[in-house]
């Protein structure tokens, strides 16, 4: 069987194909964006295009069961208030295998992808990766 070694950038979703928020965006807007892209993650970037952190469906679920303030107030919190700042990331030139190993080990669905300047350039989403793998018969 032909086993092609993919790099992360060949499989990742490029900017524009997954939700990205600015540090000043409201949580409500971020949730709507996640809904529009039908993805359970949003990446928050600063003005230099660096990843500030990520927010996932799981984070939202945990927040919702803990938040004591009115929902109207929660929706108008800045997304940055709830992001996970030490998100696991991968570089675009890393191998897909390496990325999949991290995803398996950490039990996560998505990995923000960075370039050598540490700018956000993509998102590796497990389902898309599986599709790529299956259609290219590399397993």
């Amino acid at each position: 069987m032909n086993k092609k070694k993919f790099k992360v950038h060949e499989v990742m979703l490029e900017v524009g194909k997954f939700p990205i928020a600015k540090t000043t965006d409201f949580l409500k807007d971020s949730i709507e964006l996640m809904d529009n892209y039908r993805l359970g993650i949003i990446c928050v970037i600063d003005e230099k295009n660096k990843l500030s952190g990520i927010l996932t469906d799981g984070d939202l679920r945990r927040n919702l069961s803990n938040v004591q303030k009115p929902l109207a107030s929660y929706f108008l919190d800045y997304t940055t208030k709830y992001i996970k700042r030490d998100a696991t990331t991968i570089y675009e030139n890393d191998s897909l295998n390496e990325a999949l190993e991290i995803m398996e080990k950490k039990e996560i669905w998505d990995l923000p992808v960075l370039n050598e300047n540490n700018e956000l350039t993509g998102l590796l989403h497990l389902h898309k990766a599986i599709k790529k793998i299956l259609t290219n018969s590399i397993i």
Partner: peptide
């Protein structure tokens, strides 16, 4: 206005 709703007005000004 609620204080959090003022963020919408700030957003408009920005």
């Amino acid at each position: 206005m609620s204080p959090w709703n003022m963020k919408n007005s700030v957003n408009k000004l920005e």
